[in-house]
Simulated assay, not measured.
Amino acid sequence: MAAVLDVVRALFAPASTPAFVIDRETPADVVAREALLDRALGADRSKKSSEKVRKDRFPAQGLALVARDRVGHVIGTVRLWNIEAGVSREGQPVDALLLGPLAVDAAREGKGIGSALVRAAIVEAKKRGHGAILLVGDASYYERFGFFAKKARHLVMPGPFARERFLALELKAGWLHDAAGMIVASGRKFSRPAQRTVV
């Protein structure tokens, strides 16, 4: 009987390893990340305004993060992208980051994975000296991290977007104070192989 109780205790004891960890994305994560985004965001995800900004660009250096379960599977993802958040009053581009997409495996929702990814992204962006992060998302979710529509009121996304869902967080006080204009991609580009025409 004691042996059976030991097995039961082992089954229900708190795990010695966390349920998930936040890690840097690696090239080996690409297929799993893309499959997760397709499941979470649907086939039309490439038509969003944010995707126009991210198209053919690499994420910002060190700012592509994943959540992994205990055996290393990708169960969440977030990336940040270099952008110009309009221009300052003096006409200078205002460097910033665009957050997204954020996605968590549906079977793991409600376990704090999305929040952990956003917090880790903010901390890492601060460490790297960035001034602000913008995103398009639900204010009711992102306000807890300090993102507010008021900070992005003089900025616009390319293509259609919902003004109340366009939010910003200043990592450095006043960074977006006089920024106005269109969000433009400024990150490193990658080139697609040229398509050959068969005659």
Rank of each mutant, 00 (worst) to 15 (best):
Met1Glu: 13
Met1Cys: 06
Met1Tyr: 04
Ala2Pro: 02
Ala3Glu: 14
Val8Thr: 08
Arg9Glu: 07
Ala10Thr: 07
Ala15Ile: 00
Thr17Glu: 12
Ala19Ile: 10
Phe20Pro: 11
Asp23His: 15
Glu25Asn: 05
Ala32Lys: 04
Glu34Tyr: 00
Ala35Asn: 07
Leu36Asp: 06
Leu36Phe: 01
Arg39Gln: 11
Ala40Trp: 05
Leu41Asn: 09
Asp44Ser: 15
Lys47Val: 03
Lys47Tyr: 03
Lys48Thr: 15
Val53Gln: 09
Val53Phe: 02
Ala64Cys: 14
Val66Phe: 03
Val66Leu: 07
Arg70His: 01
Arg70Thr: 10
Val71Asn: 11
Gly72Leu: 03
Ile75Phe: 11
Val78Leu: 15
Arg79Trp: 10
Leu80Phe: 12
Trp81Cys: 08
Asn82Ser: 14
Ile83Thr: 04
Ala85Asp: 12
Ala85Ile: 04
Ser88Glu: 02
Val94Asn: 07
Leu97His: 01
Leu98Ile: 05
Gly100Leu: 06
Leu102Ser: 04
Leu102Tyr: 08
Asp105Tyr: 03
Arg108Pro: 00
Gly112Thr: 05
Leu117Ala: 06
Val118Ile: 14
Glu124Lys: 10
Gly131Gln: 03
Gly131Phe: 00
Ala132Tyr: 04
Asp138Trp: 15
Ser140Tyr: 12
Ser140Gln: 14
Tyr142Trp: 00
Phe145Lys: 05
Gly146Gln: 04
Phe147Gly: 07
Ala149Cys: 03
Lys151Arg: 14
His154Asp: 13
His154Ser: 10
Met157Asp: 02
Met157Ser: 05
Pro158Met: 11
Pro160Met: 06
Phe161Met: 09
Phe161Asp: 05
Ala162Gly: 00
Arg163Ser: 14
Glu164Gly: 05
Ala168Asn: 02
Lys172Cys: 00
Trp175Gly: 02
Asp178Pro: 04
Ala180Leu: 00
Val184Tyr: 01
Lys189Val: 12
Phe190Met: 05
Arg192Asn: 06
